[in-house]
Amino acid sequence: MERRTFLRQLLLYSLGLSLSAPRFGVAATGAETTGAAELSLVSGADYSAVVRRALQLLGGMERFVRPGASVVVKPNIAWDRTPEYGATTHPLVVKTLVELALQAGAGEVRIFDHTCNEKRRCYVNSGIADIVGAMAERRVKLDYIDSRKFVEVKITGGRSLDSWEIYRDALTADCYINVPVAKHHGLSGLTLGLKNVMGVVGGNRGRLHHGLAQKLADLATVVRPTLTVIDATRLLLRNGPQGGRLEDVRQVDTVIASADPVAADAVATTLFGLEPERIETTVAAFQMGLGQMDPSRIHISEQRL
C-alpha cells in the first residue's frame, strides 16, 4: 500500500471511530407510585455489628446481592479528612458492607468516589485505603475515578437536566450500595444519600449547584441504588460538608439502611432534629416518585445494640 493511501485510510478510519463514540442509555424510571418503605435504624458502639444488624433487619444482604454479582460500594470520601471529623463515611461501615457483599457471593466489589480534594489523600486519610489493603481480597477493588468511564446519560424523566455525565461502573453494577455520611451542607441543608450521587457524576459539578434539589432528583432517576446505608455514626452539624472541627461533630453511633433512597434520607434528617420536608432534595425526589417520605408509610425497624 502506498504511504498516501495508507494515511488517507488511517484518517478516514479514525474519523469513523471517533464519530461512533458510544452513547449510554439507561432505562429511566419515571414517576411511579410509591409504596411503603422498609427501613432499619440501628445504634451501638460496635459499628460492624450495627451494620450487620441493620442489614439483617432488611432481610439480609442476600436480598440485594446475588451470587456472582458485581457490586459497587459508594462511600462519601470526597474530602481529605480523617474519620473522626464526620466528613467522610466511616471505614468500618464500608468494610462491613464489603464483607457482607462478599459473604453473599459477590463476584467483585468496587469502591470509588469522585473526590473534591486530591484523590489519593482522600482515600488514605478517610481510612478506606487501609481497610481495603488489609482485606487483601482479590475481588475487592478500590478504584480511582478513571475519566474515560464517564458516559453521557440521557435523563428522560428529568425536569431540570436532559443529560449528564455519569460514571459507567455506577450504572452497570448489578448492585449499587450507596453509603453516604450524614452531615451538614451549606446549600442543601444536609448531604445524605441523594446528594452522594455527586461522587459518580462528571462534568462541571459546580453547575449542578444551581437548582440543586431538582437536579439531584433528576440524577436519582438514573443512578438508582439497590441499597442505601447512611452512616450516622457521627453527625457533622456545622461547617459541612468538609468540617474539620471536633466540636462540630456529634457522635450518635447510628446506621440507617433501606432500599428506598428517599425514605433513608427522610429518616436521617430527623436525627438532626429537622423535619424531612426541610430538605428540598428529599421533597423533589419524593415528588418524582423515587421513594417514600411520609413517616406513616415508612416502616422503621429500630434497635439499639
Binding site: 451549606g186 446549600l187 449547584h209 440543586l212 461547617n239 460538608p241 468538609q242 472541627r245
Partner: peptide, 20 residues
C-alpha cells in the same frame, strides 16, 4: 440572584473563611 455555594463548600478552614 442564583444560589451558589460551591466556594464555601470547598473552603477547607475548619471555621470556614467564606460565610454568608
Amino acid at each position: 440572584g442564583i444560589p451558589c455555594i460551591v466556594c464555601e463548600e470547598h473552603c477547607p478552614t475548619p471555621d470556614k473563611a467564606i460565610k454568608f
